[in-house]
Amino acid sequence: MAADQELKIVFTGPMGAGKTTAIRAISDLPPVSTEVINSDKETHAKSTTTVALDYGQLVLDGGTTVNLYGTPGQERFSFMWEILCRGALGVVLLIDASSETAMADFRTFIEYFRRIRYDQPFVIGVGRHLSQDGYHLEEYAKELSTHEIVAPLFEVDVRHREDVLLLVQTLLCVLEAQVVEASHAS
């Protein structure tokens, strides 16, 4: 990536997957957050929930600025998914592997974000994967292949800066590879 370049990427995934935490972990600026009290504890026990967006900024060693946008997780806020994807180069999809609905969530987000942009570049971060009942990474990989999507898949702990940086840097590599591929094709 060229120095002084500005990029936009989107963090998405279901409620409780760790989008706000991930952006907090790597943002060089104090992140903008729109968390409010979660009043629907029946659906999710989390005390707060993001209702508009998270925003942070990461400056890479070469000088490239990566603008980080986090989406709300609930489908009633899907209008924000579309708004936040405008101008975004790719998506980091976070999944909470310990959730009973992990695989269904995975499908929902893959399908929705692919409707927004068919060739959407994804990087997948699966968190809380140590849960015994959860799906293994291979099962997520299998699901990706049924959608004919090639996307890097990692086990992550989004509280750890290195794990989140790995996701962002991998997404940037995917984007760079696409640019190289396109230039070879032309």
Binding site: T34, E35, V36, V51, A52, L53, F79
Partner: peptide
């Protein structure tokens, strides 16, 4: 849903 997003952004 939209007004709650706008409200949070305004906050």
């Amino acid at each position: 849903a939209m007004s709650s997003s706008m409200r949070a952004l305004s906050d």
